[in-house]
Amino acid sequence: MIKTRHCSLAALAIALLCALPGYAGEEVKFEQPLLISSAGQSAEVQMVAILAKRSDLAYTLIKFASAQDLDGVKTLVLSLGASLKGLGAAGLDVQQEKDRLVQLVEAARARNMPVVCLHLGGQDRRGKLSDDFISTFLPYARLTIVVRSGNQDGLFTRICSQHDIPLIVVEKTVDAIQPFRQAFQ
């Protein structure tokens, strides 16, 4: 019952979202194809790809995407959450990852391409390192989907409220499929 209500709320939020102006005063339109990338190299980027797959969306997953990878793309989707393991495996330090992302989101903004942010790691994917990425890159989003346990302290609510970003909170990762799919309809 609770889940149904959440999904209905999510649908309502999407409907409202489609009618809302973006921060540049334009109507926000999320279109395919998507470029999915990571903001912090946590494993959740793969979950975002599975969400896109199950939503029948056309997407490309590039964990270390650069500005050139935006060619032919209509929406940039970022998976928020930092992982030392992921960064280490990629041979990146935190600053290199942030530099890459600044270039990527600025390139998206220059192309007037909307950014969708997802935080699927819950409370486990919070902490100093992840919060740094969240605070830096969430303000670029035109839509945010968050697993509830990741927003227990209201960090996402605060940032989204400050920047007029629609925020959809779901209980579990699997619950994100419906709002994610609907955003692109």
Binding site: M47, I50, R54, G122, Q123, D124, V147, S149, K172, T173, V174
Partner: peptide
């Protein structure tokens, strides 16, 4: 995995 996604606490 829990229906293709990680288990939550």
């Amino acid at each position: 995995l829990n229906h293709g996604f990680p288990f939550e606490a």
